[in-house]
Amino acid sequence: MLRNKFISIIALMMVFLLVGCGNSSEESAGKSDENYPSGNMKFLVAAGAGGGTDNFARQVQPMLEENLGTTISVVNLPSASGAQAHKRTANSEGNGLTLDFASSTYITSLAAGQNPTGLEQLTPVARMQSDVMTLIVNPNKYKNFDEFYEHAKNNPEDVTIGGTHAASPDKMAFLEFKDATGLDLNFIPYDEQGSVSSNVLSGNIDGMFGEISSILGYMESGEMKPILIFAEERLKDFPEIPTTVEKGWDLTNGNERGVFVSADTPDEIVSKIEQELKNIYDSDKYQEYEKKTNLDFREGWLGSEEYREKLEKDLDKYKKLQKENK
């Protein structure tokens, strides 16, 4: 009787632990697109659970499962800015079963030399989100961009901007901004977005680079204010905020999220996945999710070829910026 109980407890524990590992095995098989997918699929997410990139992957997961009639497991590999996710994808068999879900952090960390998996080892399949980079300040300090600009110009080294991590899209936006405007500003990287926000709220730092979608609540309460948008045209939803391009600076990059596969993947399979992702992107359900999470300020979709060109261009630019600011 007692013994039975032990066994059942242990069995229960084991089942539970297996859930924790959640890695299903994947089988390798033929390489033509007709029998794609040839087995269960795996999403490697180059970010922690609960963040924007993770939400993106988990949104696509059930839709792709349904469209392809397969099972997909999601594995988060957040450490070292997602470097592990890229490495594992690059080393995976080129059968299109391992998909890497990544944000612009992939390219910014590559430029900063923190990520050993270059663009020659991965094939970009599609970009699905393109968030808008924004300069956000505490309205008690600066009412609008002109006030911010004047103050920063007259007081070199006095203005401090926060962002997440030392090789993030926030940091690159900062470097781009500094380079284009010629302003003398400081940057402090924090470990989490929450710390950046709380330091802006309390006025310890002057502002931050981030996305409007993450600060809507603070805008409503008047505790944070976006004063400059990295875009060509003003946003429909926020026509009062000026853009970089109208100020004469050609800065339009924001945080983008897309899907990658191993460079060994045959073209037919890449275009097959691209088509599947495009179908998802166009679906009402996906568009509804983008609307709900405020990711619909501008067009997100870029196909495989265009995405690669964009990434290569960005990489060159970021590498140059990184070098100049060493």
Binding site: G48, E192, G194, G217, Y218, T293
Partner: peptide
């Protein structure tokens, strides 16, 4: 603003449910 690791993930869940965290 999350006060710890677990609450950071709960914050992510708020966003997925279309809630707007903030003041």
């Amino acid at each position: 603003i999350p006060g710890s690791g677990t609450t950071a993930i709960i914050l992510g869940a708020f966003v997925m449910h279309g809630l707007q965290p903030g003041p």
